[in-house]
């Protein structure tokens, strides 16, 4: 199981993947926005997206959980 956490304060702009999706290492899960920049959050392992902890429009803090890959 691998947790994906936020590297910085940001807004969740787009949720690209959905719970239950099969994802591969490098796939975009969500796209964050901070300081006028889009930051794709990528899967760092392959597996099933067991949990997606954010929704579009959320404001997240550094270290917040974004997703869990099984």
């Amino acid at each position: 199981m691998s947790e994906v956490r936020a590297e910085m304060v940001a807004n969740v702009w787009k949720v690209v993947a959905a719970e239950g999706d099969t994802v591969a290492d490098g796939d975009t899960l969500v796209i964050l926005e901070s300081m006028k920049m889009e930051i794709p959050v990528l899967a760092e392992t392959s597996g099933t997206l067991a949990r997606l902890a954010v929704a579009e429009g959320d404001v997240i803090q550094e270290g917040d959980l974004i997703a869990v890959i099984d």
Binding site: M8, V9, S34, M35
Partner: peptide, 13 residues
Amino acid sequence: YAEDSQRFLPSPG
């Protein structure tokens, strides 16, 4: 810029 100097990711604070 308020960003890390390697990948240039935003760093508010």
